[in-house]
Deep mutational scan, measured.
Amino acid sequence: SRSVIRSIIKSSKLNIDHKDYLLDLLNDVKGSKDLKEFHKMLTAILA
């Protein structure tokens, strides 16, 4: 869910600018399909 993804971003080791950017992107995501794609992208970034 959106709140879980937000929590993953906030607890990541990324610097604050990257976190803010990803949180802004997350706010722009519409629909469950796009949310799944965003989660895939985030997982790849944090891997």
Rank of each mutant, 00 (worst) to 15 (best):
I16P: 15
L14D: 02
N27V: 07
I8G: 01
L22M: 04
L46S: 02
H39I: 12
Y21T: 07
L22K: 00
K36D: 13
D28Q: 15
S7I: 08
S11L: 11
L42H: 01
D28Y: 12
V29R: 04
V29C: 12
D28T: 13
N27F: 06
L23G: 01
Y21V: 07
K33F: 09
I8N: 03
Y21K: 08
L14G: 03
D20R: 14
L22T: 00
K36C: 06
M41F: 12
H39E: 13
I5Q: 02
K30P: 04
R2C: 04
L42D: 01
V29L: 08
D17V: 09
E37R: 12
K40P: 01
S32P: 12
S32H: 12
H18D: 12
S3G: 10
K13W: 11
A47F: 05
N27C: 05
L22Y: 04
L25W: 07
Y21F: 11
S1T: 11
N15P: 12
N27L: 07
F38L: 04
A44G: 12
L25Y: 05
T43K: 10
A47M: 08
I16Q: 15
S11A: 11
V4N: 08
D20Q: 14
L14F: 02
M41R: 08
G31N: 12
L23M: 07
D17P: 06
S7F: 05
L22E: 00
S1G: 09
I9L: 02
D28E: 14
R2Q: 06
V29M: 08
G31E: 07
H39V: 15
K40F: 05
D24A: 15
D24T: 13
K36R: 13
N27K: 15
Y21W: 09
D34Q: 14
S7E: 14
L46N: 01
S3K: 08
L35Q: 02
I9M: 00
D17C: 06
L26P: 00
L35A: 03
N27R: 11
K19R: 05
E37I: 11
S1M: 13
I16M: 12
M41L: 07
H18A: 12
N15I: 08
E37W: 13
K13F: 09
S3T: 09
F38V: 03
S32M: 12
Y21N: 06
A44H: 07
T43G: 07
K30I: 09
K13I: 11
G31R: 07
L26A: 01
F38I: 03
I16V: 13
K36P: 03
S3N: 14
K40S: 09
K40A: 09
H18G: 06
S11F: 05
Y21M: 14
I5C: 04
K19N: 02
L22G: 00
L46A: 02
I5N: 01
H39Q: 10
E37N: 12
V4I: 12
D34L: 15
L14Q: 02
D28C: 10
S1C: 14
T43F: 09
V4Y: 05
S7H: 13
R6I: 10
L23Q: 04
S3E: 12
D24E: 13
K13R: 14
L26I: 03
T43N: 12
V4R: 11
G31I: 05
S1H: 12
S3Y: 04
S7A: 14
S11R: 11
D34C: 10
N15T: 14
I45K: 03
L42K: 00
K10W: 03
I9F: 00
L35V: 04
D17M: 11
K33N: 10
L25S: 03
I16N: 13
I9K: 01
A47S: 10
K33C: 05
S3D: 15
A44C: 06
R6E: 15
S1Y: 14
I8D: 03
S32G: 08
K36E: 14
K30S: 10
K13A: 13
K10L: 11
I5F: 02
I16G: 14
D20W: 13
D17H: 11
R6P: 01
S32Q: 10
L14M: 05
A47T: 11
K13S: 15
K36W: 07
I45Q: 04
K10D: 08
H39W: 14
D20L: 14
I8W: 03
K33P: 06
H18E: 15
R2E: 07
I16F: 07
T43Q: 12
G31P: 03
A47R: 08
K30E: 08
L23R: 03
A44N: 13
D20I: 12
D17T: 10
D34T: 06
L22N: 00
L42E: 00
T43P: 02
L25D: 01
L42T: 02
I5V: 05
K19E: 04
L14T: 03
K30W: 07
K13N: 15
S7P: 01
K10H: 08
K36H: 15
I16C: 09
D28H: 10
N15V: 07
I8C: 06
L23W: 03
K19I: 12
D34P: 08
L35W: 05
L25M: 13
E37Q: 10
A44S: 10
F38M: 02
G31D: 11
T43S: 10
D17S: 10
D28L: 15
L23N: 03
S3C: 07
S11C: 05
K19Q: 13
L14E: 02
F38K: 00
S7D: 13
L23I: 08
D20A: 14
T43M: 14
L26Q: 00
I5K: 01
D24L: 13
R6Q: 13
K13H: 14
A44Y: 06
K30C: 07
K19A: 05
I16S: 15
N15G: 13
E37D: 08
D24G: 14
I45D: 02
K33W: 04
F38D: 00
L26M: 03
D34S: 12
N15K: 07
K13C: 09
S12P: 02
D17Y: 09
K10S: 09
I45P: 00
I16H: 13
S7C: 08
I45T: 04
K36G: 10
K40C: 05
K40L: 08
S3A: 11
L26E: 01
K36T: 08
E37C: 05
G31Y: 06
A47P: 04
L46M: 07
T43D: 12
F38H: 02
L23K: 01
E37F: 07
K30Y: 07
Y21S: 06
S3M: 12
K33T: 10
R2P: 06
D24P: 00
N15H: 14
L23D: 02
I5G: 01
K36Y: 12
R2Y: 06
K30R: 11
L42C: 03
Y21I: 07
L42V: 11
A47H: 09
